[in-house]
């Protein structure tokens, strides 16, 4: 091996190791700074619902619930739409429409989340409130439904962009083979999607990861009431939102430590979701 090759190898190796090191360092410093709360509440932090800064009682269950529930709902809404966009652009779209459509979906991804939040407050929330008045629910407007809807809008461009790229990598021969066997257009697209399934799962999980960590827009529309509820109309809370809301004014050591532990929990959940999705993709690729 020539010395430049060796240098290159070592160099990029260091960069790769740095990435690993950063992830470990984040985990360690989060655990370190939340040690007060870790010792005080232990596992109860994950399963109790009392969040009371005055009494010094901290339980993260409503925030964990709100984060997972809103993200799953957002995924259920966003995935069909995002995959529809991806399939349309890569399989059916007239070529003159393709570039503008790609540009528009990517534009959605570039909008700052505070702008989504304001749109949420002034457009989405009043619309949800009208719906609530129609069906006789309490006309709050803000709540889980508004939070999930705004997350869905924010997730769509990410999922659809990755899914589109994945569909582009499906060899033409796959589709041609399907047509040769007498498949309809729908069946040919289905075959292409089946071929690209691992990548599409990856695209969906990317959207899920984004939904878990989204902060500002959700904070502005979800209602910020820490409660575990299945109701779509109840105001709820997410982990990222409580961090954004309470971190600046948390002057007491235990309170600050509990908030940092929320960050640690979010970190662990995000990591677990990524590991699970990797595992899923890996096992699908093997079979």
């Amino acid at each position: 091996m020539r010395s430049t090759d060796l240098g290159f190898r070592v160099g990029i190796g260091v960069f790769a190791a740095a990435l690993l090191l950063i992830v470990v360092a984040i985990g360690v410093s989060l655990a370190n700074d939340s040690s007060l709360s870790l010792q005080r509440f232990g596992l109860n932090f994950w399963r109790t619902s009392d969040w009371n800064p005055v009494a010094g009682e901290f339980g993260a269950l409503p925030f964990i619930w709100g984060t997972l529930y809103s993200s799953v709902l957002a995924l259920l809404i966003a995935t069909p739409v995002a995959l529809g966009i991806a399939v349309f652009i890569s399989e059916l779209c007239p070529s003159m429409l393709r570039a503008p459509l790609i540009f528009l979906t990517e534009l959605l991804a570039a909008i700052p989340s505070i702008v989504y939040g304001l749109w949420g407050i002034f457009v989405l929330v009043p619309a949800v409130r009208k719906f609530e008045l129609m069906i006789g629910a309490a006309p709050l407007g803000v709540g889980m439904l508004a939070g999930a809807l705004i997350l869905a809008v924010m997730v769509v461009p990410f999922t659809s962009a990755v899914a589109r790229e994945v569909l582009k990598t499906v060899p033409m021969t796959q589709r041609e083979a399907a047509y040769a066997l007498g498949a309809t257009r729908f069946e040919a697209i289905r075959a292409a999607m089946f071929y690209a399934r691992t990548g599409i799962i990856g695209a969906v999980m990317l959207g899920f990861g984004r939904a878990l960590g989204e902060t500002m827009a959700v904070t502005m529309v979800i209602g910020n009431n820490p409660q575990v509820s299945l109701s779509l109309f109840a105001p709820q809370y997410t982990m990222a939102a409580v961090l954004a809301n309470e971190f600046t004014e948390a002057a007491n050591a235990l309170y600050l430590s509990a908030l940092i532990e929320i960050g640690l929990v979010l970190f662990i959940i995000t990591l677990a979701v990524n590991v699970l999705s990797r595992g899923l993709i890996w096992s699908m690729a093997r079979s």
Binding site: P53, P126, R129, P139, G143, N225, Y237, A250, A251
Partner: peptide, 30 residues
């Protein structure tokens, strides 16, 4: 409830900042 910069509210919805609270109040009847 007690006194602090953040408290455990027995009821209601939370708006972020003065603009969040006033936005919710001006939009929500009652």
């Amino acid at each position: 409830v007690g006194v602090s910069t953040s408290v455990k509210w027995p009821a209601g919805v939370g708006g972020k900042g003065n603009e969040g609270v006033s936005g919710l109040v001006t939009q929500t009847p009652g």
